[in-house]
Design a protein around this nucleic acid. Structure first.
Lengths: 251, 251
DNA sequence: CGCTACGTTGATCGCACTCAAGTATAGTGG
DNA sequence: CCACTATACTTGAGTGCGATCAACGTAGCG
């Protein structure tokens, strides 16, 4: 009955040549960590990074593997998860251009704490922790920024703890959708499309509920006109309504 | 039937004179943030801090209040919580000597994100964020340490997210008890006594369950010999057994 | 010796998980 | 262009855990 709906998610086409040195500099400039750095210094820092391409589905780092690199997403979307002894896994976050993952700073031999998988084709910049530590020492403003960025992340994580304890499935799903829409959203038909391959399963994992429950909630919200959703994508059409469902959402 | 059992929790007696300049230095030395600092420099840093006493029950900082100080617990125990729009509140953590709270580093006018209450008499050191930022710039090793400490905390918070989603009440309570025993525990009658005024209510809040459920679980574990508990205190008598209940506990 | 706050225990109820079919969609190869 | 398949998604029925409500111990304290 409805016209054949085309999947609105557009995954970036990325090839080896996509990550030019100019683009890299632009990406690094956008990162909060470096936005007080003089152009000249940024160019130096840029040289310490190497870039690397990943195809969709590739595992970039795996939980438990020894590793001491800090990664920055240049292009594309990645998913950060942590596995459970019981075999399952919890999706902690989804990151897009400008966000980082991996080992920020640690002494001695460290292991990655999370598994990071490319959800689309991805170009990532990375740097050895040792080299990054040198940057921290050489550029105090980067160190200050690091502390702030980490504080923010910590706050966010604690916010998630609060959300996960004592809220209903609907409230938690609403919360996750709001977060994702803010981070990954692009304007789309009067609403906000979450520009990432977002299956019910991902959403369920981030909200700490089952896929069935997620499906039910999404269906209900779709009937209410709050969301528009398809196979592998969701768009928020009525953000205020969602905010009403997630009582403590602050942003 | 059992001999009149005396409450085993001993709250420290703290008066104004407790926080000598020597003690302060010893406390600061113990903090990971400063343990690579030369004695001479530490003495300088010590002077930037002021100390302040709080009686049990006093609110040290309140969520939402404008504030730009970093606090370090010198003596005593504090409780970190965050309130819910629905009127409730979630206990995020309990901190003892050497741990910090408040604003670590932030630009512009900031507000406290948590409410911190003294559970015992407390002596706390604090420093203006501005002054702390100067320390970060002057002593790069402190900045490095800050990044690491925050990374650790972030990891821990994410661990809590994982724990809270998809685990049973018993598993989450076991997890919280293990954490508290490690942080605040002291040897006691062959077990580990959590040296803090720990009501069922606190435990419940940290685990994200109700006090009734907590009571039931604690009773059960007490019958099994895993715990010994009283009014306002809990001791872990069989840690391995608790570990079995909290499948993913790592530390 | 009461008073108060903490803790325990019981009964009931509802939400979300589990298990189980069934449906629709995107991509595949003819 | 169309049948075919794999995968994502939906929907339903039943169940169990933990929340809620309520009443009752009990320890500690003045």
């Amino acid at each position: 009955m409805a016209a054949r709906r085309i999947v609105p998610i557009v995954l970036p086409q990325i090839d080896a040549a996509s990550c030019t040195i100019e683009l890299r500099e632009k990406i690094l400039r956008r990162i909060p960590l470096f936005n007080e750095i003089a152009n000249h210094d940024l160019r130096m820092i840029n040289r310490s990074f190497t870039d690397q391409g990943f195809r969709a589905g590739a595992t970039i780092i795996r939980e438990g593997e020894p590793g001491v690199r800090l990664f920055v997403v240049a292009l594309g979307i990645v998913e950060v998860s942590r596995s459970t002894e019981s075999g399952g896994s919890v999706v902690l976050d989804m990151l897009s251009s400008g966000e980082y993952f991996g080992t920020l700073a640690g002494f001695g031999p460290e292991h990655y704490e999370d598994t990071v998988v490319a959800l689309s084709a991805v170009c990532a910049l990375s740097i050895d922790t040792e080299a990054f530590r040198r940057i921290l020492v050489d550029y105090p403003s980067v160190a200050l920024r690091s502390v702030e960025v980490l504080s923010d992340r910590l706050h966010l994580a604690q916010e998630m703890v609060r959300q996960l304890s004592g809220y209903s499935a609907e409230e938690r799903i609403a919360y996750v959708l709001l977060r994702l829409a803010r981070k990954l959203g692009i304007p789309w038909r009067g609403g906000v499309l979450i520009q990432a391959p977002l299956k019910r399963e991902h959403l369920a994992s981030m909200a700490g509920v089952t896929t069935e429950t997620t499906s039910r909630v999404v269906s209900r919200l779709q009937k209410a006109g709050t969301l528009t959703a398809g196979r592998g994508w969701i768009a928020v059409m009525d953000e205020p309504a969602l905010r009403c469902l997630a009582p403590d959402y602050t942003a």
